[in-house]
Design a protein around this nucleic acid. Structure first.
Length: 394
RNA sequence: GGGCGGAUUGCAGAGUGGCCAAAUGCAUCAGACUGUAAAUCUGACGUCUCCGACUUCGGUGGUUCGAAUCCACCUCCUCCCA
């Protein structure tokens, strides 16, 4: 099976500029494509992960990826899909974030001579001269067209700053620059980037008369239509210090029934015919599918060893036996309330108290009824049915 | 630059002198039912030394026995006119 067909079967293809041309290009390994990453945080998250997977898939098919770090566009902030303005990042933060991104990416993509490139648009955007840019690029766009772009619609009601309005121009400029300098002929991105990407292909056509292509990837939405990879505590990060391997595993272990197959298709590298087989499995094997999903993804992100460990801990926590996730705490009073707070299970004493009063906490097999119940090192605390932690008091 | 309106507890959004820790919806957490799923029902959802007390309604002052609510100034934002 060729790569394009595989992408389609996995449900990754959302919009393309020219299906036949693109098919030929990527199937033949002739694409030099880029994907942009905005350094808005110090770690990549699940949303980026899909883009990385896509890069890897295309790289395996012989295409050459270019990772574009938005060190320059980070100064502007993409207004797409936002209802308010993004807080402006300081140059130091952007710099730091870029470095974090780079490190994490190196685990997925092979960089190097004639392989994949990593570039930072700060290198060319920061030196641009305003007047030159207006003459060269500004002339190629009409405001009328830009305003029609879907990504600005929402913001037309709330207010869109001129700064953010220029994001599209910058992204188009990037594409053009990469096309000139590295022979980049294609751009991939999330489906919400479509209008920005089209601006790029158009600019290239106008400036150099060359054809360039764009393809968007389906956004990973859950059955409720919300972006996946968000939890109450925030995004699901790829950095282990921000989201532990165990929590990462649990996130996928707990996805809705309706979303399991979609996630397996879009995110894992399990061959498509195996996936098709899994689709035929009986309903009662749904949990098996979730385990596969969780394990495969944890393996990709954190490595096989940690994935195994996470899986073992999950099985211990929910099935019994084996090693449980541990939490080290340092408390003055060794009773249940301060321990719950110190372990980060509850955010305040009041919350802990309420939880106990509602019967949501147990130590070992015993349900806690006394808000002053003692806790000793090595006790296993359960909160609800999903949080099981072994407490180690230091 | 001129005019109007606005800023409320995670979000949305009521409240316009005491009955307000502040309606309602969403999100979240727990209990019941389950499959570490969904749906449904129940409860909780500012903080604390929790039958009580304390701190919150953009900021700073003021009026008042009493202010999220009234006044003044400041900051930010929407909209209308330029």
């Amino acid at each position: 099976m060729d790569i394009y067909e595989e992408l389609e079967k996995r449900g990754l293809v959302a919009q393309v500029t020219d299906k036949e041309e693109i098919k030929q290009l990527i199937n033949g390994g002739g694409a030099r494509f880029y994907i942009g990453f905005d350094p808005t945080a110090d770690s990549l998250h699940v949303g980026h992960f899909m883009a990385l997977c896509l890069m890897k898939r295309l790289q395996m098919a012989g295409n050459k990826p270019v990772v574009l770090l938005g060190g320059g566009t980070g100064y502007i902030g993409d207004p797409t899909g936002r209802t308010d303005m993004r807080s402006m990042l300081t140059p130091e933060t952007i710099q730091k974030n870029c470095e974090c991104f780079k490190k994490q990416m190196e685990r997925f993509i092979e960089f190097g001579e004639d392989k994949a490139l990593i570039v930072n648009n700060a290198d060319w955007l920061l030196d641009l001269n305003y007047i030159d840019l207006l003459r060269e690029v500004g002339a190629c766009f009409t405001v009328n067209n830009m305003l029609r772009a879907e990504c600005y619609k929402q913001r037309m009601e709330k207010g869109l700053s001129f700064l953010e309005f220029n994001y599209m121009i910058m992204q188009a400029y990037d594409f053009w620059h990469l096309s000139e300098k590295y022979g980049c002929n294609m751009q991939f991105g999330g489906d919400d980037q479509w209008s920005n990407m089209l601006a790029g292909t158009e600019l290239i056509r106008k400036k150099s008369g060359k054809d360039a292509y764009a393809m968007t990837i389906t956004l990973l939405l859950n059955s409720e239509g919300k972006k996946m990879g968000k939890t109450a505590k925030g995004a699901v990060w790829l950095d282990e210090n921000k989201t532990s391997a165990y929590d990462f595993y649990q996130y996928w272990r707990n996805v809705d029934d309706a979303d399991v197959m979609k996630c397996i298709k879009m995110l894992t590298f399990i061959p498509i015919d195996e996936i098709e087989q899994m689709e035929g499995w009986a309903d009662n094997r749904i949990n098996e599918k979730k385990e596969i999903l969780a394990f495969e993804l944890t393996k990709l992100v954190h490595g096989e060893e940690k994935a195994q460990k996470a899986q073992a801990m999950a099985k211990a926590a929910f099935g019994g036996g084996g090693e449980l996730p541990e939490k080290h705490v340092n408390v003055e009073f060794k009773t249940i309330i301060p321990v719950l707070v110190a372990a980060g299970i509850c955010s305040s004493n009041g919350e802990a108290r309420r939880l106990i009063q509602q019967g949501g906490v147990s130590i070992g097999e015993e349900k806690v009824t006394d808000i002053n119940a003692p806790v000793k090192s090595g006790d296993v605390i359960h909160k609800g049915k999903k949080v099981h932690i072994k407490i180690v008091i230091e």
